[in-house]
Design a protein around this nucleic acid. Structure first.
Lengths: 141, 141
DNA sequence: GGTTACTGTAATATTAACAGTTACAGTTGA
DNA sequence: TCAACTGTAACTGTTAATATTACAGTAACC
């Protein structure tokens, strides 16, 4: 799995948690434990997908513009990490003589597409709001 | 996803397809499109899990020792690639002051454990025998 | 018993992916 | 005009993945 997916989820949960719903890339980066430039890159994608708005210039930053209970991890997965479980390496070769070797790529591809759907379906059931609730539950114990 | 998973599945399908159910690492490697040494490593794991038997020496090689319709991709996943979808990178830090940053690792870990179960469940429904059938279906079209 | 054809395994390149970092232009508010 | 931001691209360093080599161990066959 892409680590940008994690950065995206973490950033959105953080924004959802903040009273004013806003934070700068520097603040988010410190919380996520990575670099501001990386956060800006990831949140740039989220902006293009319409999940956050940004304000440049002094006093600027990122703001969540969707209800946390309306946004699922599947949305984020599709934006940040679609196709992440399919390996970039593949076996066999369509030009090969052997039936197994020549058709394996296609069959394997189908298998992973199915896996991807399965995963998306699972992520569909988890919202940013729920993530925040789970974190609060951790805190109490 | 681990590419060793693919090599394992491909090798087992190939063995299931061969009339005598046997092949050498060299033959398998040519079919998979990788190196014999890599095949030997992967099939070494499958031997330890009891899915294939090996015979060293001249005329040796690998033989499937389980009914292809009894062995699922979930078995192979557990042997070769358990935990593959969980990223090795993680955000936040348990020692941090912020509630979000300090608990994100635990919550994210739970999310990915759930995703893993979901994926295993999906793989449980696909057998090596089915993979071979799908390949035959590809061939006809 | 020697030769040949294999597996088992470790060590070592080589390559690709990934995260970290720097840099700077563009934007906005004070 | 200055200071504090975002938006991007380029570059570096590190780690992970794959390919390759090498060789000891084992079994069949003549």
């Amino acid at each position: 799995m892409n680590s940008e997916f994690i950065i995206a989820v973490h950033s959105l949960v953080l924004l959802a948690h903040k009273p004013d719903g806003m934070a700068s890339s520097e603040e988010i980066a410190a919380n996520v434990c990575t670099h501001p430039a990386r956060v800006r890159k990831v949140l740039g994608f989220l902006r293009k997908s319409g999940y956050v708005t940004t304000r440049e210039g002094s006093g600027g930053g990122y703001r969540l513009c969707i209800d946390p209970s309306d946004m699922t991890l599947a949305d984020i997965y599709r934006t940040m990490a679609a196709g992440a479980i399919k390996p970039n390496w593949c076996s066999g070769n369509p030009d090969m003589d052997c039936m197994v070797g020549s058709n394996m790529q296609e069959v394997m591809n189908d298998v992973f597409c199915g896996a991807e759907r399965q995963l998306e379906n699972y992520f569909q059931g988890i919202t940013i709001g729920q993530m925040l609730s789970r974190i609060k539950a951790c805190q109490k114990t």
